[in-house]
Design a protein around this nucleic acid. Structure first.
Length: 660
RNA sequence: GCCUGGGUAGCUCAGUCGGUAGAGCAACGCAUUCGUAAUGCGUAGGUCAGGAGUUCGAAUCUCCUCCCAGGCUCCA
């Protein structure tokens, strides 16, 4: 009777009766697994537990505490939410409801153009709990194209999906249907049926550890020109603990939000008088920024860069020549028209200025490569809804440089450049990277095929020799050149796109930039754009979040605070400060007119790396009490020289008190 | 730009049915002189984002504008 055999993930084989389902397999393996099972993976494809197993299949039972299991239960939870919404708003249209990272969403259009409010989330959640309590089965059915259209005739978005799958499916739509020819649906009750490829959990009772997070607007098909739907985001997990852990993690992330820390640590602010995306840096943020910029400058000097400067405003002619006005006018601040009829623009980038510097006189191949660096402040008219803290602003300073070189020099330049980039990022404490290479777009691209191929190969070779993971973004380059970008993972595992290195085959051509080569003829230079921080503001934001505000000592605005135990220790505290200041350490003294505990507390909240406390013993023996950030165990009787040496070493090494 | 929510003291927030503004922290003053995360008392601080409207009366209701948050779109 055992006429069906399947293979389990551990390579073992198992015999089952003909027509056995995934669920039968789970039962045969063990009661516990059968109880846990949510779905199955058959030959790499996720299916319902009730689906019959083909002979010889590789089968894995999917349980809740796995990525695939969570995906299934998140998707099922989205269906439950859709049902809840249709119960509460009869006639609501539902569009798409996939599982996403940490949860799910579903897009709706409510009758009469109604909108969800935040209060509705609680109502919907309550209704969802009822549905979970009702232990409704997820029942799969398959229909023909025509039957599908009939079934969903009251659901215009579903009709559109069915039709578009018929006429050439997108990834997104395929997720909704079994295949172009079969319309699969899942129903929970006679009243609720959804178009879906599946799989789903066996019953709504298997769900329950979810929370609706927020309501948002989202365009149908992600298209700005199409109707805006009401999207509800939720998070869903396999257990109460997992849900709570996720919510706690969100709180932790919020605590290290650079906007919050920027306020708490008095680094910068966004005065509403200035408008969206325009920041001012306070003294402490200004110090942090200065340290970053000074370090970057000194490294660029070592790497053979020349320092240039360019104005913030220019006649329109420059951006007409560069072509930016043709394709980027929307992203620029509108022109200022002056008396003579000239239009002047704020610069949204520095590149054309640097090309003009290159062109200021005739160039010889002997001068190349020329590397021009500028902390260039640019202004971009970001949409008001797009600005975000320091990471997406309307005015920012790029650590921008352009390298003009010959084609022969290109490979060496790219190699040393990538090394430089990674070194610099490591100096700021980021060390978990991967690279992304965006290659030639199919349709339209300037530059010769060989140039592209050579640039791409070089970038790839350099990336590989750096020993880093390389993700290909085929066809993702700009039309004017390939790009490599460095993605960095921060302390809590988020990735940020940081540095970009971009080849440009176009701008030198538009500006007719050239150099005289050994053959005594004019040749076109290759231009490399690159920014290591991206923008100083954004890089600072990423570092603040990476360190949760506990900046390494060299970057801390105040490195040491000296506190006398009583006010008769204040003059010794001042002496200590003066000694350290002579070595360039940023030290402040807070006079003893408040209890020591209160002053220590304040300094701790300000995340100052070292709090130095001096009292009778220290005055008598020329010593210090050192309270390091991150430690609850202050040291007593440290000599000034010892502390000074330690501190200077830590600053030079870009280390932190926590690292000791 | 679009959707939802929000804007009350420097900060975090409370403010009921529309009846004339509150707390904690911070600041300032005085006292306290203290050895590692909050000393006590007191004082001052407000065009309730801005404007218009409804009302005898508006932080509270309506409309407009600005700014913020989370999304969507966008990010050369």
């Amino acid at each position: 009777m055992s006429d069906l055999e399947v293979q389990l993930p551990d390579g073992s084989h198992r015999s089952l009766h003909a027509g056995a389902t995934a669920n039968d397999l789970a039962v045969s393996i063990g009661a516990r697994l059968a109880k846990d099972a949510l779905a199955a993976e058959v030959n790499g494809q996720l299916v319902d537990l009730v689906s019959a197993l083909p002979n010889g299949a590789r089968v894995a039972i999917v349980t809740p505490a796995s990525e695939k299991g969570r995906e299934v239960l998140r998707h099922s939870t989205a269906h439950v939410m859709a049902q809840a919404v249709t119960r509460l708003w009869p006639g609501a249209h539902y569009a798409i409801g996939p599982a996403i990272r940490d949860g799910f969403y579903y897009d709706f259009s409510l009758p009469g153009g109604e909108h969800f409010s935040d209060d509705d989330l609680a109502r919907i959640e309550a209704e969802m709990r009822k549905i979970v309590g009702e232990d409704q089965p997820f029942t799969r059915s398959e229909y023909s194209f025509e039957e599908g259209l009939e079934l969903f005739k009251d659901q215009p978005f579903k009709v559109e999906i069915i039709q578009s799958v018929k006429s050439g499916a997108s990834e997104e739509d395929l997720a909704e249907l079994a295949s172009p020819s079969v319309v699969s649906t899942y129903s929970n009750t006679p009243a609720f049926r959804d178009l879906c490829r599946g799989p789903h959990v066996p019953s709504t009772a298997r769900l329950g550890f979810f929370k609706l997070m927020r309501v948002a607007g989202a365009y149908w098909r992600g298209d700005e020109k199409r109707p805006q739907l009401q999207r509800i985001y939720g998070t869903a997990w396999e257990s109460k603990d997992a849900l709570e852990a996720h919510l706690t993690q969100l709180e932790e992330a919020e605590k290290r939000d650079h906007r919050r820390l920027g306020q708490e640590l008095d680094l910068f602010s966004f005065p509403s008088e200035l408008g969206p995306g325009l920041a001012v840096f306070h003294p402490k943020g200004g110090t942090m920024r200065r340290v970053m910029e000074e370090y970057s400058r000194s490294r660029h000097v070592e790497e053979g860069y020349d320092f240039v400067n360019s104005p913030h405003i220019t006649k329109s002619e420059l951006f007409e020549t560069s072509g930016h006005l043709d394709w980027y006018a929307d992203g620029m601040y509108p022109p200022m028209e002056l008396d003579d009829g000239q239009n002047y623009y704020l610069k949204p980038m520095n590149c054309p200025f640097h090309v003009l510097i290159f062109k200021a006189r005739q160039r010889s191949y002997r001068e190349l490569p020329i590397r021009m660096f500028e902390f260039g402040t640019v202004y971009r008219y970001e949409k008001s809804g797009a600005v975000h803290g320091l990471t997406r602003v309307r005015g920012m300073t790029q650590d921008d440089a352009h390298i003009f070189c010959t084609r022969d020099q290109m490979a060496d330049e790219l190699t040393s450049l990538l090394t430089f980039v990674l070194d610099l990022l490591r100096d700021f404490g980021l060390n978990d990277f991967y690279l992304e290479l965006s290659t030639r777009p199919e349709k339209k691209a300037v530059g010769t095929l060989e140039e592209w191929r050579e640039a791409e190969e070089t970038l790839e070779k350099v990336a590989n020799s750096a020993g880093l993971e390389l993700v290909m973004d085929e066809g993702g380059g700009a039309f004017y050149g390939p790009k490599i970008s460095v993605q960095a993972r921060d302390a809590i595992g988020r990735t940020h796109q940081l540095s970009t290195i971009q080849l440009d085959f176009q701008l030198p051509q538009r500006f007719d930039a050239s150099f005289i080569a050994p053959d005594n003829a004019r040749h076109r230079p290759i231009m490399i754009h690159r920014a290591l921080f991206g923008s100083v503001e954004r890089f600072m934001a990423i570092l603040i979040e990476h360190y949760a505000g506990n900046m390494p000592t060299w970057m801390s605005p105040e490195q040491v605070r000296v506190l006398g135990v009583r006010d008769d220790h204040d003059s010794y505290a001042q002496e200590v400060a003066t000694t350290l200041r002579a070595d360039g350490v940023r030290v402040e003294v807070e006079l003893a007119n408040e209890p020591l505990g209160a002053r220590i507390r304040r300094a701790k909240l300000e995340k100052i790396p070292y709090i130095v406390v001096v009292g009778d013993d220290d005055v008598a023996h020329d010593t210090l009490g050192v309270n390091s950030r991150g430690s609850n165990d202050p040291e007593r009787g440290v000599t000034i020289d010892d502390f000074r040496e330690r501190l200077l070493k830590e600053i030079a090494e870009h280390s932190s008190p926590e690292a000791r």
